[in-house]
Computed example of a mutant assay.
Amino acid sequence: MLSLGIIPWIIWLKIHDKKYSGDLIRAGLFMTTLSLILDSIGVQLGLWIYPYDVIPFIPGYLPWDLTLIPITVMLMIESKPAWSPLLKSIIFAVLSAGAGEHLAIFLKIYHPIHWKPIYSIPIYIFLFLISNKLAKSKIFNSNFNSNF
């Protein structure tokens, strides 16, 4: 789990286009913040648990929320710029809820109690679309060509 929190950032730093760093980091920080909040709410409401802690007293969802989710979003925003943000959001949602959550369940690092991965799909779509909008917003002098 510790390597899941570090290796994706190293890969992202090497492969992303540096001129978009600020725009992508803004989107990634937004996604990180909302992921942490939503995960915390889900755990507190008893919808799911993370039975594995990376470090004692630090929740097991941190590698997902601080690394995997924002890195995936940032890479998807930057790649295939001609693709529709809605299409990208659907791909992100299906990969995250379908593959990511099921893999975490299989690895026993995430255990849904009153939640099904399919419930996450509309949430992931919505969060991706907002992150994409933030990354490409002219308000922040974005380097991306916004097609909104």
Rank of each mutant, 00 (worst) to 15 (best):
F144S: 00
Q44Y: 13
F144R: 01
N145G: 05
L68E: 14
S35M: 09
I118Q: 10
S142F: 06
F92L: 11
V43S: 01
W9G: 13
S137C: 03
H114W: 11
Y50W: 14
P56L: 01
G98H: 12
T33H: 06
S89W: 05
S137P: 12
L4F: 14
D23G: 00
Y119R: 04
S3M: 08
S120R: 07
S146D: 15
I11Q: 07
G46A: 13
T72N: 10
S40Q: 03
Y61C: 07
T72Y: 13
L2V: 11
E101F: 05
F128Y: 15
G46T: 14
I139S: 06
I71V: 15
D53A: 05
S35N: 15
I58E: 00
M1S: 10
S84I: 01
V94K: 02
G100R: 04
L2Y: 15
V43R: 00
Q44I: 01
L75K: 08
P122M: 05
P59S: 15
G98K: 10
R26D: 07
P51H: 06
P63G: 08
I118C: 04
W83Y: 13
T72F: 15
K138S: 14
N132R: 02
S137Y: 05
L68A: 14
G42P: 12
N147C: 06
G60D: 07
Y52W: 13
S84C: 04
F30I: 11
E78G: 07
I58G: 04
P85N: 12
F144L: 01
L86K: 15
I113M: 03
L24R: 11
G42V: 00
P70A: 13
W83S: 14
Y52E: 10
H102P: 01
F106T: 09
H16P: 02
G46W: 15
L66E: 03
F144P: 02
V94H: 12
I55S: 10
L129N: 11
W9K: 09
M31N: 09
K88A: 11
S40C: 02
I90E: 08
L66K: 04
G60E: 11
I118H: 02
P51F: 07
I11T: 10
I11D: 04
I55G: 09
S21L: 12
S21N: 09
Y20K: 02
L95D: 04
I58H: 04
I25E: 01
L75W: 15
N132A: 11
P63W: 13
N145A: 10
T32D: 03
I71P: 09
R26G: 05
A104N: 14
Q44F: 09
F57R: 03
L87E: 06
I55L: 15
I130S: 02
M74N: 08
L107V: 01
L4K: 05
H102A: 00
D53K: 03
L95S: 12
L45V: 05
H111K: 13
L13I: 05
P117D: 03
P85I: 01
I55W: 15
H111Q: 15
S137L: 01
V94A: 14
E101S: 08
P81W: 05
A135K: 06
Y61N: 00
G60N: 05
I139Q: 07
L29V: 08
E101H: 08
K14H: 09
N141G: 06
N147G: 06
I113L: 04
M74R: 07
P59E: 11
